[in-house]
Simulated assay, not measured.
Amino acid sequence: MAANLDQIGARFRFYMKIKELGIYEAGILSGTSATLISNIIAGKNYTMDELLKVLSEFKDLNSHWVIYGEGNLFKQTGHHGPIVPEKRMQHLQEMQRLLEKLDAIEKSKANQNQIEALKARIAALTTQL
């Protein structure tokens, strides 16, 4: 499966929103720059090596999910589950299901109305975080 740069950016932006990270903070935490983080989020002007360097610095983030949209957003941390407050887990799972559905619809380009409705729902859920 080929990586879609726009979707990688959307998924990484989603992770940053959950973790309440700004572009500048993500650059510092990843040991890179705000410019690189901005480029990743925008889906342009970065290499796979740069992306992998950034992703490797976020220990709880599942890089396979960011790149391919498969699996869970968070890595499992042994017996303790994902690193996220329990009260937010159901909300995050719903958002992940919507993102997966959005990916499937965008791949088929079947119906632009469905895409816009899902994007609006994801945006609404994101504002509640």
Score class of each variant (00 low, 15 high):
G78C: 06
E106C: 13
I83R: 12
E20R: 15
E106H: 09
E106N: 14
G78A: 07
K119Y: 00
L99R: 07
L118E: 00
V54K: 08
Y46L: 05
A117N: 02
I122Q: 02
A42R: 15
H91K: 14
R88K: 14
V54L: 06
A123K: 14
K17E: 10
Y46N: 04
E20N: 15
S108L: 11
S33N: 09
Y15H: 06
P82A: 11
L21A: 00
V54R: 03
N62S: 10
T77R: 14
L55S: 03
K59C: 06
S30R: 03
E106Q: 15
L118V: 15
Q112F: 05
E100P: 11
S63E: 10
K17H: 10
L21Q: 00
L102S: 00
F74L: 11
T77Q: 14
I41T: 10
T35E: 15
Y68L: 09
I83L: 13
P85D: 10
E94Y: 07
S56H: 12
E106R: 15
S30E: 01
T77F: 10
L73V: 11
P85M: 02
Y15R: 05
H64R: 14
A110E: 08
D103A: 07
V66N: 00
K19D: 01
M48D: 15
P85Y: 05
E50L: 09
W65D: 02
N39I: 08
V66T: 01
L92W: 02
E86Q: 14
I105E: 14
N45W: 08
K75W: 06
T77P: 04
H79F: 11
H64V: 15
A110C: 05
S38P: 02
P85W: 00
E25D: 07
N39E: 12
A34Q: 12
N113L: 11
I115W: 01
K87V: 13
D60C: 11
I41M: 06
N45L: 09
G81C: 12
K119A: 02
L125N: 06
Y46D: 05
I23H: 07
A104D: 12
Y15E: 05
E94W: 05
K119D: 00
T126Q: 07
M48P: 11
Y15G: 07
A124F: 05
A104L: 12
I105A: 13
I83Y: 08
E116F: 09
K53H: 15
N45K: 14
L92T: 02
Q114W: 11
T126C: 04
H64S: 14
I115S: 06
Q93K: 13
I83T: 12
K59I: 12
K53I: 13
D103V: 03
I41L: 03
L21R: 00
T47C: 11
F58G: 00
F74Q: 06
I105F: 08
A124D: 08
I122W: 00
I122M: 01
